[in-house]
Design a protein around this nucleic acid. Structure first.
Lengths: 157, 157
DNA sequence: ATCATAATGAGAGTAAGTCTCATTTACACC
DNA sequence: GGTGTAAATGAGACTTACTCTCATTATGAT
């Protein structure tokens, strides 16, 4: 298992914009300037980000619009909402705009870092989950596998 | 892999109360009537519950006290807070008061059901996570593995 | 260029959860 | 069993992440 950097995107920036545009169009949404800046802010962050972090990177974006657009992007399959990190939601690109990965969630500061596991383990996890889901009459969409603990910064305090 | 019922607790009710009492005492907290009723409400639910669901099962408990006590119980290692199910936190007993398990999270109604995976898979997951955590200087506490999808009730609509 | 429609943004509104503080309860010691 | 002290309670004010509203503006199709 190699630890990949989150800065290795599966798509180039222009391909990302094209893919986002296509997904929005498929849901009858427009790829406006504001949404483009929002996508670029998430891209620049390179990690799951909260709304305040987005507004810092892309000042001038109205919070109400960012919230609304994160919603649109989520429903269009562009973005995932992560709620494991405390009281503030984090956002990141959804698959396949970003490769499948998991999270290190800091229980102290709520920060979230991406990590990658090997495909064999992912396959066993999916197989096992599919089995229990079937027994419960549950229709699986995706899994989330997060490690909760203390990040390097918080541990050294 | 056998699908265990969540109604198979690792502890009897009196053992549960004893264990809770001990954990509270270890943190210099008292096991009061209100906390006892709260613990029993979570026990009766048999699934991760939200605050309104607790108040229904145990009417008369003041919401502010329930919130405060859920906090105390969480910090004393009695209860886990689950934030995967939308905007409302769910609570359930922590290990080892409840055996290690995972969740089916309905993306429609936000309900959460417990499922159990086999120990071998859990071990591989822990091994892999420990490896990536070490590389990131992250101190692991616990992992969460949730399956997101649509529950039987919501799928049939 | 025009037009219909979607998107924007400022601010009001909502609701989950926290804080405050006067009162009550639980445990330790006698 | 009483007594004192410190923790727990509960009602309601408060905070804040997020959503809604609606008048204005930008977008993309023709």
């Amino acid at each position: 298992m190699t630890r990949r950097r989150n800065t290795d995107p599966p798509l180039s920036t222009s391909d990302l914009h094209a893919a986002v545009s296509q997904r929005l169009a498929r849901h009858d949404h427009r790829y406006t300037q504001g949404r483009r800046r929002l996508v670029e802010a998430i891209l620049e962050a390179g990690q799951p980000v909260t709304l305040p972090e987005i507004v810092v990177v892309a000042p001038g974006l109205a919070p109400s619009s960012v919230y609304r657009n994160l919603d649109v992007l989520e429903r269009s399959g562009v973005v995932n909402r992560i709620t494991s990190g405390g009281d503030r939601a984090h956002f990141e690109f959804a698959e396949p705009l970003m490769s499948h990965h998991h999270h290190l969630v800091c229980v102290d500061c709520g920060s979230i870092e991406d990590v990658f596991l090997d495909d064999e383990l992912e396959a066993s996890v999916d197989r096992s989950l599919a089995e229990v889901a079937g027994q419960a009459g549950f229709t699986p969409l995706r899994h989330s596998l997060d490690l909760h603990g203390r990040c390097a910064g918080c541990e050294s305090d």
